[in-house]
Amino acid sequence: MTMEAIRTEAVRAGDVRLYTEDLHLHYGDVHALKGINMEIRGHHVTALIGPSGCGKSTCLKTLNRMNDVVPRVRITGSVVLDGEDVYGKAVDVTVLRRKVGMVFQAPNPFPMSVYDNIAYGPRVHGIRRRIVLDEIVERSLVGAALWDEVKDRLKKPALSLSGGQQQRLCIARALATGPEVLLMDEPTSALDPISTLKIEELMAQLKRDYSIVIVTHNMQQAARISDYTAFFLLGELVECDRTDRMFASPRDRRTEDYITGRFG
């Protein structure tokens, strides 16, 4: 089956939440994404892999329009979320970003208390009532497997947590706005193996409620946690397939070279 065929089939079947269509992105003169056609399935983990500078982060950021703030950026093609074009004229990016949450490579909690970090998103979206906020904070922290560790120190500065805890706090903060899709850009690359393991376990749980896209440089991680994998090279999407299938029998020679460690 061609990729095109797999794609249309999946979209029709309705398990694709989010897909890009002939997506091109230029940073000034740099052609960073070259006609990406990629689909993200609901309640699965999709891993984006590829050598440094191939456009993984760029592609991830087009999904919640975090590229909008970059000067001299030019985007063509479309990103479709539940049937709506993310780059459509009438799209409110704040609503989009509430639906498509993001976790960054380095933990970046705000210099506020643990509680205020989590409550930030809901507050920005107009939730003021204390009981509601309390409930959201607890639910998000439980969801990010952090509640037990911080429930007695909600008023403590978030920056006093360990790096791994901070990253789970950032996940909790992203969960607090009630997203449907979670984007994670190398969320464990700044963490120790134990914290990494915790976050990987967490993702296995989170995919029950969310669709997850994760950028990773770690092949084992991609193989362990993802259901689908997209391989990028020099701004192109070389291959996008079920992870087990891609790792067992990649269709493209370049994919095979990369995942077997022959380059990159």
């Binding site: 975090m66 960054f104 705000f110 920005v124 706005t177």
Partner: peptide, 11 residues
């Protein structure tokens, strides 16, 4: 990163 995080949360 503070600003990125704030924007990504829909501010």
């Amino acid at each position: 990163p503070y600003e990125d995080a704030a924007l990504a949360l829909g501010s």
